[in-house]
């Protein structure tokens, strides 16, 4: 099975401190990381390759610095990567990013595209369905379980109420939540091997996408104002000396919650 995994590099937005335990390998220099959910996508792709054979390609649309995340992704085990980078991409909205991803995917002929369910920076959760719409392939999103039986895919899709079982045939895109598996840690051998794996760099020109369709120029929405919210400050803090519960309820009562 020819599998393409979508990997996005995202800013580590203050998560660095708590990420340290898991990412101690390269923490000092990293202010950008692989979108966490995408690691579960990589793991799922590798598991399918191990069970059914095939090839795993990492696809990233992002600036030059994203190479670091691509190498990290490759160190987990994928065979190769495609990196779409172009200065004109700066400031792209989700619609434009999806168009570029779709153009790259058309050249890759994937049977199965696996992505994260959402990126932690934007939290938009839209790219997988945008791609399905652009490519005319099936979308099975929000997977907490994926079963592959030949060309037939079955996904347990997490919903607010519980879950849904959805099925489709390849070609398809599956997006995954962090409940689907436990991503492997890159081995030393994997890290060394990743350095030699092919990373193909493509420009917008290579994909036949015009610069006017992407970036700030082609953005379909615009931010008008930005302001920081004042940070929250802690209020009263009492130490429980036998009446902590009562004091808590007294506070809730003054705030009219009880």
């Amino acid at each position: 099975m020819n599998i393409v995994v979508l990997v996005k590099q995202v800013p580590d937005s203050g998560a660095e401190r708590t990420l340290s335990a898991d990412y101690s390998v390269d923490r000092a220099s990293a202010s950008n990381v692989i979108n966490e959910m995408d690691e579960y996508a990589i793991e799922e792709a590798l598991k399918i390759k191990e069970a059914h054979g095939g090839e795993v390609t990492v696809l990233t649309v992002g600036p030059a610095g994203a190479t670091e995340s691509i190498r990290k992704a490759l160190s987990m085990g994928p065979d190769k990567a495609v990196h779409v980078q172009d200065d004109a991409l700066h400031g792209s909205c989700a619609v434009a990013t999806s168009k570029v991803l779709a153009a790259a995917l058309r050249t890759l002929n994937a049977d199965l595209i696996i992505s994260g369910a959402e990126s932690t920076d934007g939290r938009v959760q839209v790219v997988p369905h945008m791609l399905a719409e652009l490519l005319g392939v099936a979308a099975l999103t929000g997977a907490r379980k994926l079963t592959v039986d030949g060309s037939q895919l079955t996904v347990e899709r997490q919903t607010d109420e519980g879950y849904e079982v959805v099925t489709a045939a390849t070609p398809a895109i599956v997006s995954v939540w962090d409940t689907i598996n436990e991503p492997r840690y890159p081995s030393f051998k994997g890290i060394m091997a990743a350095k030699k794996k092919p990373v193909q760099s493509l420009s917008l020109g290579d994909l036949g996408v015009s610069a006017g369709e992407v970036g700030s120029a082609g953005a379909t929405s615009q931010v008008l104002e930005y302001s920081k919210r004042p940070a929250r400050t802690g209020g009263a803090k009492v130490v429980d000396e036998g009446t902590g519960g009562e004091q808590l309820v007294a506070y809730l009562a003054t705030e009219k919650f009880v």
Binding site: R232, G234, K237, D240, G245, L248
Partner: peptide, 14 residues
């Protein structure tokens, strides 16, 4: 740091 009201204590008692 963000709680408007905090109780320092064992939740199984509080």
């Amino acid at each position: 740091e963000l709680a408007d009201f905090g109780v320092v204590g064992d939740l199984f008692k509080v």
